[in-house]
Amino acid sequence: MGEAPGAYVPELLDGYSTAMLAATGVGPGHHCLQLGPEGGAVAQWLAGRVTPGGRVVAALAGPGRRTPPHGIEVVSHDIATEPPPRGPFDVIHARLVVPHLARRRDVLHQILDALRPGGWLVVGDFHGPIASRASPAASSHGASDTDLFAAVLNDVHGRVNETGAGDRQWIGTVERHLDAAGMQEVHAASYDQVVRGGESACVLLRDHVIRIHDRLLRLGHRQCELRRFHDLMLDPGFSSWFHEFRCVRVRKPVTTYGARPVVPTPHRGVGSA
């Protein structure tokens, strides 16, 4: 994978991810695996759900933290080249991971193999580039600023964050791959949201763009454009649509005698299908 996403990602996505995870019925005694960058808060949320008797493993590329949060086992792991940590797991959460890999279909099957029969996989990612859309009514800025925001973000999550192997449309077809693998109870939800200047997500996004400033220049962005982007991220009068986030959950069939299924709790749904 390329450049890791910034700290704005959990600010924008954790609520959607945890809502989808809650719909699996994850609870005390379950074993969970967290895959992907910027997933620390989700791992802590899982740890709070599986106590007592549960286990949460957070697999991170690079050296693991020496003092992980209570209830979480952090391991150094590269899902692009290594099979998932030893399971089986009742719930696996993989966000901003699989569509970015050259071997995405093989990796998906390895992740499914790490699930306990009756267990759940929740996978999520941005779906395609930011589309050309009118500015939200609350924005005091015109199309030129909205177009600039979209152009920078599309490169941040496309040409900067990818190694050339990624496919930002793949998450929109993952149900087909899961169905072909024999999975059950597939549920997909797509989320749109508006981001506003001065809010914490935009401040964190500005910090991330500053960090990769030179790479964006090499992609053809001008200094004046990036300065304007920095200003917009602090301007309460600016608002724009963000990337569509697509999240899918799927259950592995109970095929082993005596296997412990993960039973979902009743819920009203976590988004539009």
Rank of each mutant, 00 (worst) to 15 (best):
A4C: 01
A4T: 10
L13A: 12
D14Q: 07
T24A: 11
G25I: 06
V26F: 13
G27T: 07
H30C: 14
H31R: 15
G39Y: 04
G40D: 11
V42C: 13
A43G: 07
A43F: 03
T51Q: 13
G53W: 10
G54C: 10
G54H: 09
A58S: 11
P69H: 10
I72K: 04
V75R: 12
T81G: 04
P83S: 15
V91W: 09
V91Y: 07
I92C: 06
L96G: 04
R105S: 10
R116P: 00
G119H: 10
G124P: 00
F126R: 06
P129N: 14
A134G: 03
P136W: 14
S140H: 10
A143G: 02
D147V: 01
L148S: 09
F149V: 03
V160C: 11
N161V: 01
G166S: 15
G166N: 06
D167Y: 05
R168G: 08
Q169N: 10
I171P: 00
G172P: 00
G172E: 06
D179K: 04
D179I: 02
D179P: 00
A181V: 05
Q184E: 15
Q193K: 04
R196P: 00
E199R: 12
S200E: 14
V209D: 06
G220S: 03
G220L: 07
H221G: 01
H221E: 04
R222S: 12
C224N: 12
R227D: 11
R228G: 09
F229T: 00
L232A: 07
L232Q: 04
L234Y: 05
E244V: 15
F245L: 15
R246K: 09
V250M: 11
V254G: 02
T256H: 05
H267Q: 08
G269E: 09
G269D: 09
V270H: 13
